[in-house]
Design a protein around this nucleic acid. Sequence first.
DNA 1: AAAATTTTTTCAAACGTTTGCATACATTAT
DNA 2: ATAATGTATGCAAACGTTTGAAAAAATTTT
Lengths: 344, 344
Amino acid sequence: MNSSRPVTIKDIARRFRCSPSTVSRALNDHPAINEDTRKNIQEYAKEVGYQRNEVSLSLLNKKTATLGVVVPTIGNYYETAVIEGLHTILQPLGYTLNICVTNENYLLEKEYLSKLLSNRTEGIFLSVSQETYDAGYYEHLESVIQRKTPLIFIDREYEDFETSRATVDDYHGAFAAVEHLLTIGYKNVAHLKGPNGLTVSEQRFKGYRDCLKKYDIPIREELIINTNFKVESAIVPTKRLLDLDSPPDAIFGVNDQVAIGAMRVILDRGLKIPGDVGIVGFDNSPISAYTYPSLTTVHRPGRKIGMEASRLFLNQLNGSGDFVHENIVLPTELIIRESSLRIS
Amino acid sequence: MNSSRPVTIKDIARRFRCSPSTVSRALNDHPAINEDTRKNIQEYAKEVGYQRNEVSLSLLNKKTATLGVVVPTIGNYYETAVIEGLHTILQPLGYTLNICVTNENYLLEKEYLSKLLSNRTEGIFLSVSQETYDAGYYEHLESVIQRKTPLIFIDREYEDFETSRATVDDYHGAFAAVEHLLTIGYKNVAHLKGPNGLTVSEQRFKGYRDCLKKYDIPIREELIINTNFKVESAIVPTKRLLDLDSPPDAIFGVNDQVAIGAMRVILDRGLKIPGDVGIVGFDNSPISAYTYPSLTTVHRPGRKIGMEASRLFLNQLNGSGDFVHENIVLPTELIIRESSLRIS
DNA sequence: AAAATTTTTTCAAACGTTTGCATACATTAT
DNA sequence: ATAATGTATGCAAACGTTTGAAAAAATTTT
C-alpha cells in the first residue's frame, strides 16, 4: 500500500537533486531554465502525475478563482438558466462556481456566506432566501460588505443595500400579462400570488394590481391567493377561486408551475381553457410550450440575467474604490399561447 | 480608502504585542491561555471581523472539506433531487459541495476533474457526460484513481471501472412500465429512447425489449426512436410514430419530459389519452402529477440516490486500503395515473 | 589567463495558521 | 533561600508554491 500523498514539487526536486525553485520554474516554462532540465522535469512530472497544489497557490497569491453562487433552490428552470448564464461568462475566465443551495433557509444562507468568505471566495452572487427576506435579517451580509468582496444580488434583493443587482422587470411583465387578458375580453382576473415579502412576488403582484387599476377594475381581495411557487400549492387556492359565488374568468399565476396546477384543477371541473377560463403563467419554462393547452407565459431571461450579473461582477472587480453600483433590469416578453386565446 | 486586506492573526498579535500562537490559541479556546488574554483577543477579533483563512488551514492540514459533484446538467428534477440528497447527508458533516455542470461536454468534465484534484477536493461524485460516454474516454479518470480520491459514480457509470456506484434500477423500472401497459391491453408499445450509449437509456431500453420478449411480442424497430431527454426532442419522433401504417397504441418515454412532449402531439391529433394511446414516463417529476391527463410514470428516487452515494463516500473514506467497492442499486416504483388507464 | 558576460541554479522569504517543545515567570513546598 | 511545581507565552517548523536577488557555473571576450 503506497500511501497516496500527492507528489509535490519538493519530491521532484529531491529526485533531480535540485532545488524546488528550479522545478517550479521548469514546470512553468520559465526562460532561465536549461532546456534539458526543463524537459526532464516536465516528463517526470507527467509520469508521476504531478498536479500543482492550488491551495498553496491560493494562499500565496490571495487569489482563489472561486465565486460563490448562493441561491434558494435549483429546482426550477429559471435558476438553472441563471447558473448557465453565469457559467457561460465566468468559466472561460477561469473561475470556478461554488453553487450553494439554501433551501430558503436563513441559517444555511448565513453559514454558506461565512464559509465562502473564510475560503476567500472572490465574489458572491446572492439570491436571498425567503426566510432571510421574511425576517429582514441582513447582518450576515455585513461581513461580506466589510471585506469588500464583490456582492451581486440576483432577482431577490434588499432594497436598502448598496450593491450591484441584476433583476428581471417583473412588474412590467406581470402588467403585460394581465393587460393581455383584459384586452381580449376577460373581466375577472385572479392572481395566484407568490410568498409574501419576496421581491418577485410583490413586483408581479403590483403589476397585476396596477394593471387592474389602469382599466378601472376594482381589486377583489378574494381573487388574490398565496402559493409557494410549487405546482401543488396551486391546487387548493384554485379550487377556492372556482368555488366563489362570482368566480374569475382568468387566472394570472406567479409562475408556470402554479399556472399548470391551476389548469389542472380547472380542466378537472369540466371547464374549458381558454373558453371558460384564461390562464397566464410566468417564466416561459420549457414545459410551458407543451402542456395541453399550451401556456401563455412571460419569458424571464434567466440566462441573460446570469450573463449580466457576471458583467456586473467583472465591472466591480476592475472598478476603482469609488465604484458606483449598477442596477440592471432586463425586460420580459409576453409569449402568447393557447391558454389565453379566447375563441370569441 | 482603507485597503480591505482581511485581518489576520498576525495583525491581532501586533495589536496585543503578543505572538501569533497566543492569538491562535486564544481564538481556539486553548486551556493554557490566560482568561483575560483570551477574552480581550476574542472580543477584538469579533470587533474587527476576523475570519480565519481556511485556505491556509487546508494547506496545513491537507484537508479541504470540499467535495466535487460533477453532473451533465442540473436542468431536470432528478439531478436536483440527487444534489439535495447529497446535501442532506454531507452538509451537516461540514462538507461543502462544489457543483460542476459539464453540459454533457467531455472537455469541460475533464477540466473540472483536474481542477477539483488541484484544489484537493476530498471526494468526487460523478455522473459522466454523454460525450465522455460516447467517446469512451476515461483517461481523465485515471488521475482521480491514481490519487486515490474517493470517486462515486452516480447513475451513468463506466461498466469497467473499479469504483463505488449508486444507481437506480432502470431496467426493472422500464420493465414494469411496459408490463403495466401490456397487461391492461395495449398491444403495440413504442419507445422514445434516450441517447445511445448512456447507461440510463440502454437499461431502460433493455427493460422495454425484454418485457416485450417475455410477452412474445416481436420488436418492431420502427417503434423505437431516439430523443435527447428534452421535451422538444419528442415532437418529431412522436409524429413519425403516429404516421406509421400501423401506429403504436402506447408509448413508453425514456423520461417524463419526453412523455409530455409525446402527449401533446397525440392530443393535437385529436387522439384520446389513454383511450387511443397509453403513455408512461419515467422520473416522477413533480409536474407529472398535474399534466392533463396526469402521467403514469416510474418513480426514480433521486434524493435517496444522493443519500446512498454519500454513504458510499463515507464508507470509502473510513475504509481500509483493501476497501471493496460497493454497488448500490435502488428500486423504482411504478406510479399509475391517468395516462395509462384504459377505459375498456 | 584574467576579466567580463551570459546562463543556470539556489537561497530565502512570503502567504496564514497550528502545535510540540522550550522558556519565562509566578507560586508553592521544602 | 532553594527547589519544585504550575501557568502563560514564545519559538520555530510545517503545509506547497512562487519569485526577486544572490550565487554559482559556464561561456565569451579581452
